[in-house]
Design a protein around this nucleic acid. Structure first.
Lengths: 201, 201
DNA sequence: GTTGCCGTTTGTGCTGGAGCAAATCGAAGG
DNA sequence: CCTTCGATTTGCTCCAGCACAAACGGCAAC
């Protein structure tokens, strides 16, 4: 296992490159970003402490489908492909476990696809916030705080809308007391209110 | 293994129900459709002969995330969960193979998410057609024919746009000689032309 | 303090494409 | 033959939200 320190904004691995290692975050967090040929990009996932990433292409075409970018100064672990396979060989349950993890990710992605095609920008933004809270939220004074440094642009690219609409919506919700933002920290005050806006079960 | 005949339009399994079997198409084909609480729906995949479906939730929450609907009169195979697990137990390679299959599906879904957020309707439509051709196309006189019965509405819901825009785009492309449609059969005449419209590598 | 950088907010114009309605067409069924 | 039903086409309207621009505010470096 290799341990590595990265600074905020550092590229952990780059889209299109060869996939040779399995990665995980130990402390800090990262964004998984896919860029199209027109330059526009979408955030596929946020990686928090304990989560693995960049692992799937080891089992498929060994091509990294996206960038991984540190969203904070972070500590990153990684294993070589051989080590990973040896690990699976020794503990076959890891494979079944991996199937379950991939399965849930698949389910989430399918939901995102539907949401992107059927919901409007405001609803998608609310869902994005709720999803991030479910993934990386912790109870704090005054609400549920998302443990990721989120810029408006991040929220926009994660929910498939633009910086501008994201800014407007979040500002409106802050004024309405649904959430609070401060220096990249986002705190949800009224989750049920957001769920009502999302209006999608 | 259970063999089952279904008519066009029959529901093979329904969204929200319990996942108890692994499915595959023997002859014919099916649509996997997810419906939102607002009633609008998105087509997640098309299933052709030899492809499995409904299998993933057996490994996760045992909840079917979408409907499976026969797009033609079809013959459907299925295995009980116990049989599937026994099969995996006897042939452990199946698990690794499954990971690879899930991995590629994951990759495709990630691309779709990015496309939905960054590309315009016409580009997404072109990509949808190309993707379907890659999945279920066969060489025929005059081009590459998609072996699925595709209504305009299907193409629209698969590419995240509306029936109307899909109709317009396909009609324009037919007039331009890029493709031909006839009775639910879609034939691509000029794939590179479509790729140019998609303009996304 | 000044400067520059980064992120956010806000105003404004404009267009892509969603949404509706009506006409058309074709196939199946009686 | 007529009817019915499903699918497609087409014209039209209208608005969500994208795009650009400009201003604002905080922070760090110098």
């Amino acid at each position: 296992m290799r341990v590595q320190r990265v600074a905020k904004g550092d590229v952990i691995f780059a889209q299109g490159g060869p996939a040779a290692r399995a990665w995980a975050i130990s402390t800090g967090c990262a964004r998984i970003v896919q860029t199209g040929s027109n330059g526009r990009q979408a955030i596929l996932r946020f990686i928090g402490p304990g989560q693995m990433f960049g692992t799937v292409p080891l089992f498929t075409d060994h091509r990294l489908p996206a960038d991984a970018i540190a969203a904070q100064a972070s500590s990153v672990l990684s294993w070589s492909e051989a080590d990973l396979l040896r690990l699976i060989d020794r503990h076959p349950r890891i494979a079944v476990n991996l199937i379950a993890v991939l399965g849930t990710r698949l389910g989430h992605l399918q939901e995102r696809v539907r949401e992107l095609t059927t919901l409007r920008a405001e609803q998608r933004l609310a869902l994005a916030v709720l999803r991030l809270a479910a993934q990386a939220g912790r109870e704090t004074a005054g609400g549920h705080t998302i443990g990721l440094p989120l810029r408006r642009r991040d929220v926009a690219e994660f929910s498939g809308t633009t910086l501008y609409t994201a800014s407007r919506a979040l500002a409106a919700w802050q004024k309405a007391g649904l959430l609070a933002t401060c220096r990249g920290q986002l705190t949800i005050c009224d989750a049920s209110g957001l769920r009502r806006i999302a209006g999608d079960g």
